[in-house]
């Protein structure tokens, strides 16, 4: 049942790559995990990131990168399985539990993750963080959303604009 590791060419040991954060911290991680990033995948397929080289990621700081890699390592085995859902409900439930726990984080960390997920094009992580933000918005009034998302309070001019807009889109406010 053991599926062959994607990306290891020789003797069974998983190939490792090095990623370098914006603040020059080096992270060594399995190529299969880093390849969840569409951005990195091609470089890694071309043999980059191995040995002393490392792939620099000037837009991602070390705190965010370590969080991103935590996600990739957890999800890599399921992704290697052809992207198909795991056979057993148990494995799915375990991943779900991990995901819920994973995004239970401070808003500024969440925002950094959104930026990183988009920069690195990690499909699953992009969806996960987008859903988390959507959950923060769900069921709230526009003013509550503004506060939740950390928008500054509206100027009187903006407030007038909001009111006009609300009239125009009355159907969405029931």
């Amino acid at each position: 049942m053991a599926a062959p590791e994607s990306g290891d060419g020789n003797n069974g040991a998983a190939r490792m790559v090095t990623l370098i954060s914006s603040d020059n911290t080096r992270f060594e991680v399995e190529a299969a995990a880093a390849s969840l990033s569409q951005t990195l995948q091609l470089t890694i397929l071309d043999g980059g990131g191995g040995g002393g080289d490392g792939i620099p990621l000037p837009n991602v700081d070390s705190a965010t990168l370590s969080k991103v890699l935590e996600y990739c390592i957890k999800h890599a085995p399921a992704a290697a399985n052809g992207g198909a859902p795991n056979a057993t409900a148990v494995d799915r439930a375990e991943l779900e539990r991990f995901d819920n726990e994973f995004v239970n984080i401070d808003q500024s960390v969440l925002y950094s993750l959104i930026m990183a997920a988009h920069n690195l094009e990690i499909e699953g992580l992009q969806s996960l963080v987008a859903k988390k933000v959507a959950d923060m918005i769900k069921g709230k009034s526009p003013m509550e959303i503004r506060r939740t998302l950390g928008f500054p309070d509206p100027t009187p001019e903006e407030q007038a604009e909001m009111n006009a807009h609300m009239l125009e889109y009355g159907w969405a406010y029931e």
């Binding site: 992009q126 987008a130 769900k138 526009p142 998302l149 928008f151 807009h165 889109y169 406010y173």
Partner: peptide
């Protein structure tokens, strides 16, 4: 959040019921 590109914001709104997604246009 507001500095994100359209693709990222669209992705967030994809997880909302349509009327709630429309309501964010007021933000």
């Amino acid at each position: 959040l507001s500095t994100l590109g359209d693709a990222a914001l669209t992705r967030i709104l994809s997880h909302l019921p349509t009327d709630e997604a429309v309501r964010t246009s007021i933000l």
